[in-house]
Nucleic acid binder design. Structure first.
Lengths: 343, 343
DNA sequence: CTGTTAGCGCATTCAA
DNA sequence: TTGAATGCGCTAACAG
């Protein structure tokens, strides 16, 4: 006498066919209720189907759907390094917003490597993502994304490409202008890797503002490092050990600024008294450093929003779309610390 | 006279069928060369196929493959908040390692919300991921993952579940013991949210070590906050404003410790002189804070490695697998700063 | 060594 | 309002 071991081990997940069989309808009807259309379903039938789905603990297979629909209901994000605070915040913002819109997020970390980046892009595209947002190490050499809408968070994209950018040049100029307003005259630049996103524009902003003011912009005022705390520390050490020490620094990212602050402490250079600092990004890193960083703040929420809609609604009024940035004053620039802000 | 506008607009990406036609072979042969098997292909044929692929710029469709193979060649990661430095580093590590192993990474940010977490898990599973690693807000209520191998980075998983954990209790005890070695007697605990991963074990370690030493563990020595800089700042303010101020704090994460340091500066409490601090995580955050944080360091690389292999090789010698942590001494505990380390 | 073919699970057109 | 049937692109038996 065989016992009922049929439903002991539900080895395979239930499919639409199983549900149809149990509810005694066709598979099409199951689709109709799952998707609320495109054909109507009688209330009583719907109830039966729902019950069967419940009973079988049915979950639609997103992959089969993706194949059929040519869309995975997913967007891809490729960044040079997610562990960088700024990119982490961007990933978080995109994950949350994409989810809210019914999309999953595929993340590709390029590990600061151009070949890795190419490979990540190809992988994501082959996964039928509905859109790709990328902060590229080199927009010119990014892999072909074919029909996948792609938005670059970068100035350097080619004419036809979608891009959402922030006003890097203007922000940098604003930062430098603020420093000049504090009476600083040797304003150094702690810059990012040559070719990295935003770097050359921020450099331009720095240079232009100084030239306009008749202040020096020589190579002895420039240092360069990776976008990392460690990189900022080393470049900071370098900058602070030069013959004629700068009295202010504009730094191209918060994480580098954290490194610079550490280097300054190490050498007994007091910020902001001996060295005023303004950085770019304005992540949470800038709020709790010592001293808190005056920074050009990127509105990550809005950037993510714009990028997502550009990619999903397949368009942008005009590309590039430039998002304004804002100088947020804290303590590192030498402004009087307002109590309300230093938190 | 119709012009050759056939290949003007390659509207659709080339499929295996197109390649087969162009190379004048069957679709199976194309598969064999793409996958290097399972059947051998004559060298000359292979060359023809390769040429056709090149010509058509053919890319295999990962979704179709996933449907057929019941595997997307992808792993999922769900964390409470990617913008947290620790989780960001974990995501990066996993993305890189997964990629190296030929897998993509699907990231789900739970946004510190248990319902969001459930939904993210269901979404990932429906995308046919080959494995899921999750740092859950509540392992008991995580969605059913069916046949998808799942590894929890958490102590509280149920018996049958795979989990990779660090020695939270032991690490905390070690931290507290170090503080006791510095002659501190009122050692507070700046803890995480009730129920968050690792929190209760770290609390236990703190308590046990103090009790053994006959030191106080009262509620007036405990504060609690989210895993964030802002949370740590507020809890720190609270702790430092109490009647009998602690002379040391064990903090359950680096980001919270950053907040605590800011709070201490705000109140003129000098670290480590007035307040010794040891935190948990040991991310890059701990290296460049002021002062650099002595911390219990989690070997993220090894954690990711163990989690990935657990999930992909479907197993673990014994679960939970406990990974040791290590006390890394810097300046915040009051040890003499060694020059080599303070970088 | 190569070709034929049957699905993977789902959405949808076309008939009923 | 429902059902039958087709195909999305790919793998891998199975048969030459």
């Amino acid at each position: 006498v065989p016992k009922q071991d049929a439903q002991e081990q539900p080895k395979r997940a239930a499919t639409r066919t199983d549900v149809a069989r149990l509810a005694e309808v066709s598979t099409a009807v199951v689709s109709y209720v799952v998707n609320n259309g495109p054909r109507p379903v009688a209330a009583s039938t719907r109830t039966r189907v729902l019950a069967a789905m419940e009973e079988l603990d049915y979950r639609p297979n997103a992959v089969a759907r993706a194949l059929r629909m040519r869309s995975a209901q997913a967007v891809g994000l490729v960044v040079p390094d997610v562990s960088n605070t700024y990119f982490g915040a961007l990933a978080r913002e995109l994950s949350v917003q994409a989810f809210t819109a019914g999309y999953a997020l595929l993340l590709g970390d390029a590990d600061n490597d151009i070949d890795r980046e190419r490979a990540q892009v190809e992988s994501l595209v082959s996964h039928q993502i509905d859109g790709l947002v990328i902060v590229s190490l080199d927009p010119a050499s990014v892999a072909e994304t074919g029909t996948t809408p792609t938005v670059f968070l970068d100035q350097r994209s080619r004419p036809g490409q979608l891009s959402v950018i922030v006003d890097d040049r203007g922000g940098a100029a604003q930062a430098v202008s603020h420093l000049i307003g504090h009476g600083r005259t040797r304003i150094a630049l702690l810059s990012g890797p040559v070719g990295a996103p935003g770097v050359s524009e921020r450099e331009q902003g720095w240079r232009q503002e100084l030239e306009t003011a008749g202040l020096p912009t020589g190579d002895d005022l420039i240092a360069r490092s990776e976008f990392s705390r460690a990189g900022g520390f080393e470049a900071g050490q370098d900058l602070l050990s030069r013959a004629q020490r700068p009295d202010a620094v504009f730094v191209t990212s918060d994480v580098q600024a954290l490194g610079l602050l550490a280097a300054a402490r190490r050498r007994g250079v007091e910020v902001p008294r001996d060295l005023a600092v303004v950085s770019f990004d304005g992540t949470e890193d800038a709020l709790f450093s010592d001293p808190p960083l005056t920074a050009i703040e990127q509105p990550i929420h809005r950037i993510a929003e714009a990028a997502l809609s550009a990619v999903l609604e397949k368009g942008l009024e005009h590309s590039p779309l430039t998002i304004p940035v804002e100088l947020v004053v804290r303590d590192s620039c030498g402004c009087e610390s307002t109590d309300a802000e230093s938190r």
